[in-house]
Nucleic acid binder design. Structure first.
Length: 520
RNA sequence: CGGGGCAUGGCGCAGUUUGGUAGCGCGUCUGGUUUGGGACCAGAAGGCCGCAGGUUCGAAUCCUGCUGCCCCGACCA
């Protein structure tokens, strides 16, 4: 990485990503291995994501709560399936006190050993279902629709900023229902919320579908997911929604008295997205100059750069910049109306009302050229240049981050133009990403071709191919090609995808094509 | 858990082969000139060379041990 700019994507996609995250001031490494500091600029993106999703959760009838970070170890033996998935990556609290080691440091006090060790939550199903047992007696107590915004600890071997860290932020919804069908509806409905959020807010098109047995959450009956494709043609799981069946109700003995007076086990769902969404949108849209951020989740949507050589000129350009900024701040901007896209969500979900997020950059030490590059790196959606030449003609120069073209606009029309361009950029980013997804989705019918497409390093896009439905075949395929089944899509991507065929590897009968890809 | 790399002012690095006053760039601070695509000049501050031993008159440099981080594989959101 040179002192100016970041590693290019063509040189090394992985280095590009890390350079971007660090240099754009989104996050940084911490003193603890695998953990990151989310810096204000990156955290602002997370806050916008939270606001958008939380509104949608409220509109679908959910309420927020917060459960403890530490979970008794004994809870983990209650549900064997679930433990299998996480046991290898749990942090354990064994003591509750330190003492002086006599050499100027501290040491764990062996006298302060916990009677029962505590697990730092890798996910909260166990403690939540232990709690739900007390909340649920009759059918009148159902459904329970609770979400929590929380941090999670998973001791991952290999970590990457935002994509996989030891500690990360997420939300986890945990719902309880009287019937299988109701839980099924909930799991599907929340997946649709995720799809809508990914597409409308993050401008990232996703495949929706069900996970294969091998890829599903260990404690689930079945798992749904949204899968995105990023610029290096790798897939990334951007959100999951699980139908947990009665697994946790049985493990924690959660029963309700039905209308008919019968004691029945409760059905459950859980669903979550994490700070990984930030990594996803970075890899989906950004370029070699830095972050390209969809306006809806951009901490700074418009940056105004007033310029001037001398005090007198600056007084004038600063005045004009402040004036424009206050005009923009008065505009209620919540993003384009994408309702024509017709989502399969019963509840009306409208984006938050908000104001245009604008910043006037009055740093006098930095040259305009430096500021151009700096804001391109940081992902301001629109840059407004306002210098003496512009004031002569009562205009300004507006540059869209994703286009880079300089457009001269009169000051009287600037705020309306900027508002329009934010809408346009939100839509254009989605369209571009969708085109990229289409260009990188392939239909393959022979094993030779399948192996060839996944040859070499890096991703190869989505490959739609037939699969005989067995775990063994899935394992062999991933061993040979590094590609995994990302999902079994709900809807055929192309006509005939949902028709029977023969397995790409074994030649055995296949019910439908599934989406393969190399994944993050 | 295997393989590789790295550890030197705030950041990025050189110096290590062949031991001899700790250097460069960026950033920071001061002053001045600048400002439409990463400005310039002058001056200044800032280091237990990851830790612990050892060899030596003398160690960033050689030897031994340790620790940490990053990257690549197997496992995972």
């Amino acid at each position: 990485m040179s002192k100016e700019g970041i590693t290019s994507r063509s040189e090394s996609f992985a280095d590009w990503y890390t350079d971007l995250v660090v240099r754009a001031g989104l996050a940084d490494y911490s003193p603890v291995r695998g953990c990151m500091v989310i810096k204000p600029h990156g955290y602002a993106m997370w806050e916008l994501i939270q606001q958008g999703l939380d509104t949608m959760f409220k509109e679908t009838g959910h309420v927020n709560a917060c459960f403890p970070l530490m979970i008794p170890k004994s809870f983990f033996s209650k549900e064997a399936q679930h433990v299998e998935g996480f046991a290898k990556e749990c942090a354990v609290v064994t003591h509750y006190r330190l003492k002086n080691d006599g050499e100027g440091g501290v040491t764990v006090d062996p006298e302060a050993k916990l009677e029962e060790e505590l697990i730092l939550r890798p996910t909260s199903e166990t403690i939540i279902w232990d709690t739900y047992r007390n909340w649920i007696q009759s059918y009148r107590d159902l459904p329970i629709l609770v979400n929590q915004w929380a941090n999670i600890i998973r001791w991952e071997r290999r970590t990457r900023l935002f994509l996989r860290t030891t500690e990360f932020l997420w939300q986890e919804g945990h719902t309880a229902h009287a019937t299988y069908d109701e839980a099924e509806h909930e799991a599907r409905r929340m997946l649709e919320v995720y799809r809508r959020f990914a597409e409308d807010w993050l401008a990232v098109p996703v495949l929706t579908g069900v996970k294969s047995e091998g890829e599903k959450f260990a404690g689930a009956d079945h798992t749904y997911c949204i899968e995105a494709l990023v610029q290096d043609k790798r897939a990334i799981q951007a959100g999951t929604s699980h139908h947990l069946g009665q697994n946790f109700a049985k493990a924690f003995d959660v029963k309700y008295l039905s209308k008919e007076g019968q004691l029945e086990y409760v059905y459950a769902t859980s669903w979550g997205v994490s700070t990984r969404l930030i990594g996803t949108l970075i890899m989906a849209h950004s370029d070699d100059k830095g972050l390209i951020c969809p306006p809806r989740v951009a901490p700074i949507q418009v940056v105004i750069l007033p310029m001037g050589r001398d005090e007198e000129t600056r007084a004038r350009t600063y005045g004009a910049a402040d004036q424009l900024a206050s005009e923009l701040k008065a505009i209620a901007w919540s993003g384009p109306d994408l309702s024509e896209l017709e989502y399969d969500v019963p509840e009306l979900m409208h984006p938050l009302g908000s104001r245009i997020r604008v910043h006037v950059d009055k740093r006098e030490k930095e040259s305009p050229g430096f500021k151009f590059n700096d804001w391109e790196l940081k992902g301001a959606c629109l840059r407004v240049e306002l210098g003496p030449r512009d004031l002569e003609s009562s205009s300004c120069v507006v540059v869209r981050r994703d286009r880079g073209e300089k457009v001269t606009v009169s000051l009287s029309e600037a705020s309306a133009y900027i508002s329009e361009q934010l809408n346009a950029m939100q839509g254009d980013l989605y369209t571009a990403a969708l085109a990229r997804q289409h260009e990188n989705t392939f239909w393959v019918d022979t094993w030779d071709e399948f192996e060839k497409i996944f040859e070499g390093e890096g991703g190869a896009g989505f490959v739609m191919a037939h699969w005989d439905g067995t775990q063994e075949t899935e394992d062999i395929i991933s061993e040979k090609t590094k590609a995994t089944i990302r999902c079994i899509p709900f809807e055929p991507l192309r006509e005939g995808d949902d028709q029977p065929g023969t397995c790409i590897l074994t030649g055995k009968p296949s019910k439908q094509r599934v989406a393969f890809a190399k994944a993050y």
